[in-house]
Design a protein around this nucleic acid. Structure first.
Lengths: 139, 139
DNA sequence: TTGCGTGCAAAGGTTTTGCATGGCA
DNA sequence: TGCCATGCAAAACCTTTGCACGCAA
């Protein structure tokens, strides 16, 4: 049987997609769909994502809603291990909380609770201003 | 073929296990094993856990290490939606950060970032004091 | 021709679901 | 007897892995 012609699901395409949607997390489904209309093999996309994670260019998180992974671009030179991340459960946008209060809170955790938090791994979930607004209007 | 006799994997057994290990998260494997030596059917345990979640007695989280869920007792009368949780990635213990600074940080997120955080859903990952100590000694 | 990227299929792990049955009231 | 909890198996879902092949240098 003839195999279908190859679709480029290459690293560059995936990276470009991430870069054009900064601060957002995507499932593998979404990445597949965005990169080539879902035509490429999932396994190929997984392989690229695994490699990109290994190189600290993207980061792998666990989805709160579903039992799957989500990926986000972190290669923008921003040190994501130094601040918290706030993810809107509505629109999926990820905010980098790179402010003094955030740093202070990390220090507080260390001093008062003896807890050495790993910021890069810790995501705060909630509603961003825009989505909150929309929710109030619709209520 | 004869089916093996029934093992009580009941709600009460699971609840007792959770209560005797407060602030800890468990995988379904661990729950099965603890409740009746792993003899009960997983599906039954899942059914109980789903029901307990629906009633807000236990809470379902996503494991950071593996692609599976972990469950934790939250029915102790403590309002877990009002404070952050810090989970030690080493020992698995979950600390409730019920302090003023935590509350203030939530307020800061709202005021300065317009972000309405859902505390109950937000888990900070890192190392607790004890595990950090051990890590330093072994280094 | 050589080597890398890709597609396909199978396997592995977690969770859900359907159905028949055990066991208690 | 009737009902609910349980066991078992299959299915669904996400991810990984092995292998063969397309495609470009």
């Amino acid at each position: 049987m003839k195999r279908k012609p190859y679709v480029t699901a290459g690293r560059t395409k995936i990276l470009n997609f991430f870069k054009s949607n900064p601060d957002c997390q995507f499932t593998t489904d979404e990445i597949c769909l965005a990169v080539n209309g879902g035509e490429a093999a999932k396994s190929t996309v997984y392989r690229h994502l695994t490699e990109l994670c290994r190189q600290n260019i993207v980061r792998k998180f666990r989805s709160v809603e579903r039992l799957c992974s989500v990926y986000q671009y972190v290669g923008s030179g921003c040190d994501c291990d130094a601040h918290f991340h706030a993810k809107c459960v509505k629109c999926g946008r990820m905010e980098h909380l790179d402010c003094e209060d955030s740093t202070e809170f990390v220090l507080h955790l260390k001093k008062e609770h003896g807890f050495f938090v790993n910021c890069g791994q810790s995501v705060l979930y909630g509603l961003c201003a825009a989505c909150r607004e929309r929710e109030i209007i619709h209520a």
